[in-house]
Amino acid sequence: MNRFRAVWPIVDETIPFPDLCREANAEIPRLAAQARAHLTRVGRFLIAPSDLVPGSGRVTAWSLVYEAPATPVRRSTITATSERERTYATNDHRACPRCGIVRDARPASLCNDCEPLARAENAHEAAA
């Protein structure tokens, strides 16, 4: 199963969690479209230390993370407008099996963001 993940830095820590989620929820359809992901179910929000969130940029101490199951959008449905996008859409790019982000990757390999998370999950499951 593929996953879609979006990350926002939490700049103002006084804003309540439901308000942060409401603000971020408005951006999810646009971000999923940019990532060429079709969300298959409703996801979940969580707050995590930025040091532990790949892709957070560690700009702030905490990050708001949204994860949801998703499927990659087929390349044939992508309308490429620029030369770079046409080249990208026709090259052999693959979706990360964990998050679904389309990247220049080997078949069945995780992206650089998901690889450390998967290793940590496997270590946690092995320790349990």
Rank of each mutant, 00 (worst) to 15 (best):
R103E: 14
T81F: 06
H38K: 07
H93R: 15
A48Y: 03
N122F: 13
T90G: 09
L110W: 02
H93I: 00
C99V: 01
R86I: 05
A6V: 00
R119S: 10
P9F: 01
V59Q: 02
A48D: 09
A37N: 00
R30E: 09
S82R: 15
Y88K: 02
R44E: 12
L64P: 01
F45H: 03
A70S: 12
D104S: 03
E27R: 03
G55Q: 05
V7Q: 04
P116W: 01
A48H: 07
D113C: 13
R75M: 06
A24W: 11
E27M: 05
P54G: 07
D19I: 11
W62I: 03
T90I: 10
P69Q: 15
A89S: 09
P16V: 14
H38Q: 08
P9L: 04
N25Y: 03
G55H: 06
R84G: 04
A68Q: 09
P9Y: 06
C114V: 08
D51G: 10
R58K: 13
R86A: 06
S56T: 14
T14L: 14
C96T: 01
T60V: 04
T90S: 10
A48R: 09
R22V: 06
S56W: 15
E27I: 05
P29A: 11
L117H: 11
G100F: 14
P49A: 07
R74N: 10
T60H: 00
R103I: 09
N112G: 15
A108Q: 12
I78D: 06
D51W: 08
I101E: 05
H38T: 04
T87I: 15
E115W: 15
A26H: 02
C99T: 04
I15A: 00
D12K: 14
A61G: 10
L52P: 04
I47D: 01
L31M: 08
P9D: 09
A80P: 02
S109R: 15
A80I: 13
L64S: 01
V11T: 10
E13M: 07
T71F: 11
R3N: 10
P29H: 12
A33Q: 07
N2P: 07
E83V: 01
